[in-house]
Amino acid sequence: MGAYFSEIFYGLKSLAIGLGVTFKEFFKPVVTVPYPYKTIKMTERYRGHIELIENEEGEPKCVSCGMCQRACPSGCISLASKSVEYEVEVKGEMKTKKKKVLTKYDLNFTTCSLCGQCVESCNFGAVTFSKDYNLASSRKEDFHFDLLKRLKERNS
């Protein structure tokens, strides 16, 4: 009989303690953010989808060596380039040299796993992570990014 009443007493006490804990929470500040109206700034190292970096002339730093393409585990990067001849002055003489110019840099973000292998494998520091995270869409095509176009839009 005594055990029965002590159990009831313990039960009521434990419920009162629990209510006390939840009651205290009433007076604590709100920790959530009303998302579409207010957003949180992403941290320095946040990994969004990749983005090309430009050099001083506003052209992409990329030399289209294709290292990122080979390093990617999911094969979501595809790039193309063309050879362009240009003249450069070496010791007072004009010489024609060839260089590769990036013509296409497509990212298929639907299969990207944001591992960062492409950024790490780049020897020229031409690729970085963006801070973009508002990427909701109902169409698959919206996640096929033309990074070259994005770079031009950013510059203009």
């Binding site: 320095e44 190292r45 946040y46 990994r47 796993s113 944001l114 591992c115």
Partner: peptide, 20 residues
Amino acid sequence: EAVTGSRLTYCYYRFGGLYN
């Protein structure tokens, strides 16, 4: 997130060390 760059599916460790 501040260290690894992602919140759930981390890719932080590398063979021999760390990403950063």
